[in-house]
Design a protein around this nucleic acid. Structure first.
Lengths: 243, 243
DNA sequence: CCAACAACCTGATGTCCGTCATGTTATTTC
DNA sequence: GAAATAACATGACGGACATCAGGTTGTTGG
């Protein structure tokens, strides 16, 4: 069972409030009628650092969409090692990581990285919606296709590249997905510790620290968790794809 | 452009012949009417070792389904290293590896492992079918969800496990998907060289040879490429999931 | 059957990176 | 603003695995 956060709120949404479906590509295709229907079923919850949205092994009753903040999908081994499968941004859907359309239990754990807001609806409701709206179903198919592609790319990188290349690739990816312009380069919008990065690229914290130190000396990046700055995106790209 | 095999045949299928859609879960949900329609559009091609069904970068015009034999989906680096993303068996659909529903170019290369037979149809035809049949679309969604789950599991294994554990996990997986009972254990139905295995678990041929040597000494497996035999499935499972 | 080739095997050597240990700087928290 | 904690940093050491180089067995084809 997922531990519910001490201070999380949970409330049904009324259609009267500002439409919370805006900016969620997977729901935008819906007809006005279907939107109403979906809205009635949607629930919003807030979580903070340390909470669990759900844990590996929990039954997959709900369907989740990130509204605000970032969420990480994590798998862990009995001996405490962790692997972050994917960082989800606003608009992403997950259940966990959308992998459990067919399954009964969550294959991974979902944890907020800071303050987040999550939209949730019953799986059955969502499936009914897809049955009624083939266009929405096609949208989901495309979304899943892309996610599958991503996951395979990640597997390839893990299989073939060195730790510094994997790390460079991560930074490039995050800059594209989450970066905001800054006088000296690209600021990353998420707080990301060396530990977080290590879990994302399949190494240890120490290794990430050493590599980031090197990157810093080479003027590729600067800053730490709260204020990560990409100073030379091209350089990182070159490193990432250096056969 | 994909090189077409020297001796491959390619012919439209008539509905009169034995129904080639049997045993393909993703098409079985279709109504009789839709089956007819799909059948008219299906083309069957044969390939053999050394051919390419398509290559990384080719445009994704078609949708593929494995009818007979096994196909591997491969990504490679400029300097000749390869990574096998997935082995596809009869009934599996790929395009490549189903990741390109949304894309324009194949993210990987598809190669037959021995003699194979492939069913092919235009992407547009398939999409039209999904639009008309929400149940079929849901089936595809579930299929993709499972594939995504698989890919993430693979990433986790690559990130956290040692080479011998990854190899053990591969053998366990293949035994389940492709094994046939044998007086002394489980025979693997596909021909699999040490090189193939290395590409699948992200190591080198030499390392696989050494580890397989150890497995052989420990009575876990026996045989080589043509005649791989799992002698102690439980033992391999234990190794694979030994934190 | 013999040649040619692919697959398999073995050893030596180096390197990337994990592990452990310990210290320093940031960030919270009260 | 001091204490507590989390994050960052550095060094020493070893192990897992890649790489290179060579040798043996097995399979295929003329």
């Amino acid at each position: 069972m997922s531990k519910r956060p001490s201070k999380s709120s949970s409330e049904p949404l009324s259609a009267a409030r500002r439409d919370p479906l805006d900016g969620i590509p997977l729901l935008n295709i819906l007809s006005a009628h279907d939107r109403q229907r979906v809205l009635k079923e949607l629930t919003e919850s807030r979580y903070r650092k340390g909470d669990f949205i759900f844990r590996e092994g929990d039954p997959t009753e709900y369907f989740h969409i990130v509204k605000e903040g970032t969420v990480k999908c994590v798998k862990s081994t009995p001996d405490g090692k962790e692997c972050t499968l994917k960082v989800l941004m606003p608009g992403d859907l997950f259940c966990c990581d959308a992998a459990a359309f067919d399954g009964t239990a969550h294959p991974g754990t979902a944890q907020p990285m800071g303050e987040v807001s999550i939209l949730r609806m019953r799986k059955k409701t969502y499936f009914d919606m897809l049955r009624r709206s083939p266009e929405a179903a096609l949208e989901v198919i495309k979304y899943l296709g892309n996610r599958l592609h991503e996951a395979q790319e990640k597997a390839k990188v893990l299989a073939l590249d060195r730790a510094d290349q994997r790390l460079a690739a991560l930074l490039v990816d995050l800059a594209a997905r989450n970066g905001q312009a800054d006088p000296h380069g690209i600021r990353l919008g998420i707080r990301l510790t060396r530990q977080d990065m290590a879990n994302m690229v399949g190494t240890t914290t120490e290794t990430v620290i050493r590599i980031m130190g090197r990157f810093k000396r080479q003027q590729l990046v600067s800053g730490t968790a709260n204020r990560l700055l990409i100073r030379n995106l091209a350089g990182l790209k070159a490193l990432a794809s250096a056969s």
